[in-house]
Design a protein around this nucleic acid. Structure first.
Lengths: 338, 338
DNA sequence: GAAATGCCTGAAAACGTTTGCGTAAATAAA
DNA sequence: TTTATTTACGCAAACGTTTTCAGGCATTTC
């Protein structure tokens, strides 16, 4: 079976390769009848252009990369959903890479991506990343980048985020209004701008309500959920006066639920919990969890749109194209006044 | 800034392109010193081979595709996790495509994939797919395929699944043992082998326990969760004698929870629920949900391994390489005897 | 001392596209 | 009729890599 490519099509039609190529691109340099002949045969033989030859020649891959910490997380899953949607509509393909929040992996992935495999990159940085040379280096090799959610302030490019500071402030205020006296804050990494912003919102809200800042109430979690359960338990045992928890990420809210069960602390009677989360079943938890929910799908879509605009125009993506979407607080039983 | 490619390296080193290429591949045809010289400069200039040129020449892309219905679903998210893990270790890249359970999209995606973009495909077919010509056609153009979870029996290739029949049987028996008299079964699509197997397990288990088959108890859900809630509600209102629900997929179990709340039916007192699910927070639901949990991460890993073995050997993937992994039943309060 | 062997390197073709340029024929303008 | 202009197509180079083939040089073997 002979391969079906431009050459074989050209031979069969008694045309040159160039003409066939142009016909398929609907170039005005080809007569209508010829175009028809070409298209007919191409359709009949089910011709599919070789993506790599085309990419090589045009120096353009019609592919974008997505680098995220993990996919087994509702937020990122929804974001990917949005990204794939936009990409598909514009004829782009989506390569996916998981860092598992590991700096080394992130560097290795980015390094690989410099082979021209992608036309642009969407990224949410790993929590362990403190040095950004690899990212800048990718940018230097002319790959446009758009950050989403976990952005990297040190790199100048467009970023799509949510109003993390305001949400942190709002979440804290929500607990205060529910009557909490000692509010703990659980976060993942404070070198992530996202974590810093939420933390700052927490701090400012406390101050606005005349609470004194108690560093003991701030707990930095780790990768492993099992360990987090231990850490949170330790915190609640050391400080039995804690009556409110503001979890910066979903996992920490869930771990807090487990700890409360272990310790027999009743939510929301003994302690109230609010957390950032995209969990669909939040309302079915026992008790239903009050959440700050990010518009994950929209974040993915907007980030992809900005990236593709930059890619198509072949010019750097400006920070001024950044975007801040709003999260929503869904009050549920876990923070009900008792 | 001159591009850093084989040509520029060769010029700088006073070598031919061929030698540089060979040196970087650690060919034995190049002297050790020359290799060192080449490697040193390549590292210094941060040379990264052009992926497309290489793919074009070798007719090999070091990329696999993953086509799944959706990603915002714990099962698929975990599977991707496993797939990415295996792919990365073997130096492969992962392209992701979502069908949203839409046949047309699936066809269009598969069609695109025939441009040689991928070396192999991992796939979970859309629930709406009844014709498999597009899949076979991809196979004909020498792209090895491995199905996982939602397999397609009509296509001869390796498949990685779970013991769906046995799990369906076991789940039903679990409800019988818990004292349920009228057990409903909720499924998504009965043209999916996975749905058929679970259904058959349900039917056989009922028969084994002397129950007569009542078609009214089998409800086929749709795409939209809101609609499903309506359908399930209707069913429970029409048949108030139903005291057990076996949900074939997570979404239907969750919808069932919502309906029970709406109708004031207490789980597990009035009605017991068991469902296939990979929800991490199943144990935190009210009440904790009894689940049949598939080893999603392992499924992804195994499927990817089988695929890559086939890709590397450049030969068709045999059905005999198929694999069946076992799901686990986690008994929780939603099916507790009262 | 010639032939054979092994080691290292280079020239050039090939992968399938896209595209700048040239050109023949057909049409329009002078 | 001659000279522009347009239309429709072909030639060939280019993208960056891999790989076949051949050849130069040194060392060994008869």
């Amino acid at each position: 079976m002979t391969p079906v490519n431009l050459k074989s099509l050209a031979q069969a039609l008694n045309l040159s390769i160039a003409t066939v190529s142009r016909a398929l691109q609907d170039s005005h340099e080809v007569s209508t009848q010829t175009k028809e002949r070409v298209r007919a045969l191409a359709a009949e033989l089910n011709y599919q252009p070789n993506a790599y030859a085309s990419s090589l020649r045009r120096n353009l891959s019609k592919t974008i990369g997505v680098v995220i910490p993990k996919v087994a997380n509702h937020f990122f899953a929804l974001a990917i959903n949005g990204i794939e949607e936009v990409a598909r509509q514009s004829g782009y393909h989506v390569l996916i890479y998981l860092t598992h929040d590991d700096y080394e992996r992130e560097v290795s992935i980015i390094q690989h991506l410099k082979g021209g495999r992608i036309d642009g990159l969407l990224m949410s940085v790993a929590s362990g990343t403190e040095d950004f040379a690899h990212i800048k280096s990718l940018q230097d090799s002319n790959v446009p980048i758009v950050f989403f959610d976990r952005v990297c302030v040190e790199v100048s490019t467009a970023k799509v985020t949510t109003n993390d500071y305001e949400s942190g402030y709002q979440a804290t205020e929500h607990l205060v209004a529910a009557g909490c006296e000692q509010i703990a804050h659980l976060l993942i990494s404070n070198n992530l701008s996202i974590g810093r912003n939420r933390l700052q919102g927490y701090l400012d809200a406390l101050q606005a309500h005349g609470r004194i800042h108690d560093p003991e109430l701030i707990l930095q979690g780790v990768m492993d959920n099992q360990q987090n359960v231990g850490l949170i338990r330790e915190l609640l045992e050391r400080r039995p006066d804690i009556d409110g928890i503001f979890a910066s990420v979903e996992r920490l809210a869930i771990s807090s639920y487990h700890v409360c069960r272990q310790l027999g602390r009743v939510i929301p009677d003994d302690i109230k919990i609010i957390g950032f989360s995209n969990l669909e079943s939040a309302s079915l938890l026992e008790p239903p969890l009050t959440t700050i929910t990010q518009p994950a799908y929209e974040i993915g879509k907007e980030a992809a749109k900005i990236l593709l605009r930059g890619v198509e125009k072949k010019k750097a993506i400006l920070p001024s194209q950044s975007m801040v979407l709003e999260s929503t607080l869904f009050g549920r039983e876990s923070t009900a006044r008792v």
